[in-house]
Amino acid sequence: MSRKKAVKGKNSSPTAGSPTGKPKGKTGKSTTGTGSVVQTNGMVHPSRPPLSNSSEFYDIAFKVMLVGDSGVGKTCLLVRFKDGAFLAGSFISTVGIDFRNKVLNFDGVKVKLQIWDTAGQERFRSVTHAYYRDAHALLLLYDVTNKTSFDNIKAWLTEIHEYAQQDAVLMLLGNKADATQERVVKREDGERLAKEFGVPYMETSAKSGLNVELAFTAVAKELKHRSMKEPNEPKFKLQDYVNKEMKSAGCAC
């Protein structure tokens, strides 16, 4: 079998390297203590199969964090991606922080995403921002039916710039795009804001499934590309990929 089971010794993988291929400033094992699974090269290395997914094989792993105001749909987005389900009214508010894993397969390479779900309420940030440091990617969500959650995006970006790695992949998502009646944030407003901050952007709906897979796939591809870059491979452009693949809220999907 060519694919090794997730065991010790993966650190020697020839593809191991920083997602950007550059040495990072703030990286490395933190002294105050978070996510030990993250090695200095920025990848998550399995040291043994996790209890819950003992049969799961993977080649590389990354940490993705979901952030954004309370009630924008972070947990729903995660569950939709993980289990393909959306059960209205079955979610309880997230208190603290939790994570789930999902393994994706790109051209024979298994990429494990360890997705961290966080409480959105402002006061919990002082508890959760310690985890930003180890995130390879952050999905920042607002709710297109809630203007405040959109207005708070700038504050979230400040928070992310302060605590996350500089080269972490970041994407802005306008969630609940299915709710046409209640929508108060126009798609163009999201686009404009994303452009202003140079962040890839799209609208999603955990309810309909719109672009959910794409959001996670796009960051996973970007991270994989950064860490396994072949010499002649053209550069992966996240925004171009997203623009090509994404569906708009209006179309049937």
Partner: peptide, 22 residues
């Protein structure tokens, strides 16, 4: 906890905040 750099907040914040509810 030390070996794997797990912060206590990750595993027990809900225990305290929710007083064990759920």
């Amino acid at each position: 906890m030390g070996q794997h750099n797990v912060m206590w907040t990750l595993v027990v914040s809900r225990w305290f905040i929710c007083l064990y509810i759920d």
